[in-house]
Amino acid sequence: MNAITRPVADIDHEPRRAQEPTTAAAAISRINPFVFGLLGALGVLVALIIGDIVGQLATVLVYIGFAIFLALGLDPIVSFIERRLSIPRGGAVAIVVAAVLLLFAGIILAIVPILVEQISNLIERGPQMVKDIQSSDWYGNLTAQFGTTFEDAAAAVLKFVQDPTNLLNIGGGVLAVGTGIAGGFTGVTIVLILTLYFMASLRSMKRVAARFVPAYQRATFSGLVEDVSGAVGRYVIGQVSLALINGVLSLIMLSIIGAPVPALLALIAFIGSMIPLVGTLSASIVNALICLFAGPTTALIAICYYLVYMQVEAYVLSPRIMSKAVAVPGSLVVIAAVAGGALGGIPGALVAIPVAASVIIIVQKVLFPAQDRKTAPPGVIAR
């Protein structure tokens, strides 16, 4: 049937079909501009609300991140106890949690009484210490060298300390510090509880995460998750091992040289060593400054000890322990730690290296094999 013999209705409808929009862009162009702008504004508003919610939940998200980090770090120990003692996972988790709680309780019982005693002695001996300082040779030398300038500065300090209003201000600052410590204790409790739950359900969490991946990719995804979690666990164990070595050696050395509150200084060394790169150095400086209260000789010995220890840690302990934990090049360790500290402070520095190790694993297991499977199209000469 040609165009001459077609029905009139078909001829009339053919131009209309040609004019109908056939693409999504044409359909969108028919939307009222006001409606389009309203939908865009609603999308921006929803994004702002989500961002505000995430900002308000930042503390909770940090708690969850720390708990997952600790759960992955303790999982190798739980698995080892589970295999060695042939007990259910719940029992292995209970043993690990009990050991961690006993460790914290032992640290608190060892430090708090000594700390309270030192603070009481400082309060009782405060006036006598001021008199001793004023009658010391170095105070007399400074007074003779700087004259009235130094005396005026010392008098201003004494006047500030003796003013009750300033003491109330100091008390308010101490109260704020105490409130912060109480908040930190609450956060630690929440993290420990979440860590307990995550350790108990870590395997089921991995299985649920694998369900979000297509069935033909689940085996690869599960293997990748195990590699990443294993790298994080080995890193946590390696870092804790370095911190424990620093804490124990600091306790022994500081006790020998007669440093004040050696148990507290050992705890500072332990906590500092948990922070990559700058943690050991920062804790060493703090401990050396505290040793000044026992005398310049004690502080000098502490400085010499920490200088030697940092060399041993950097060139002997850390390469041997961390090379078995995470295979991350030294340059990437520095870059990751600095970037993590800049983005997230101390928590960011703590998790930066295992994140870098995880990225390396993903690149080696996913990106490189995908690139290796690609071949040149037909007719293209490979060079």
Score class of each variant (00 low, 15 high):
L202T: 01
S204F: 05
M205L: 13
E226Y: 04
R211M: 10
V225E: 03
Q239C: 08
S222T: 13
P214Y: 03
S204R: 12
F212W: 10
V225C: 03
R203K: 08
I237V: 07
D227Y: 05
L202G: 02
S204Y: 00
D227M: 07
V208G: 02
G223E: 14
L224K: 02
A200Y: 04
Q239V: 10
R211E: 10
Y235G: 01
D227E: 14
A215T: 13
A231F: 01
D227I: 11
Y235Q: 02
P214L: 06
A231S: 13
A231Q: 12
M199R: 00
A219I: 06
G223R: 06
Y235C: 05
Y235F: 11
V228R: 01
T195Y: 00
V213A: 10
V208T: 01
S229R: 00
Y235N: 05
G223C: 06
K206S: 12
V213D: 06
T220F: 08
V225L: 09
G223P: 09
Q217L: 15
I237S: 11
G233L: 03
A200F: 03
F198A: 08
V225A: 07
Y235E: 01
G238C: 00
V240C: 12
F221D: 04
Q239I: 10
G233W: 04
T195K: 00
M205I: 13
V213M: 11
R211I: 01
R207G: 05
Y235L: 07
L196A: 15
T195E: 10
A210F: 03
P214T: 05
A209C: 04
G230Y: 00
T195C: 10
Q217T: 06
Y235A: 02
F221I: 01
V228E: 00
S204T: 08
I237G: 04
L224P: 04
L202C: 00
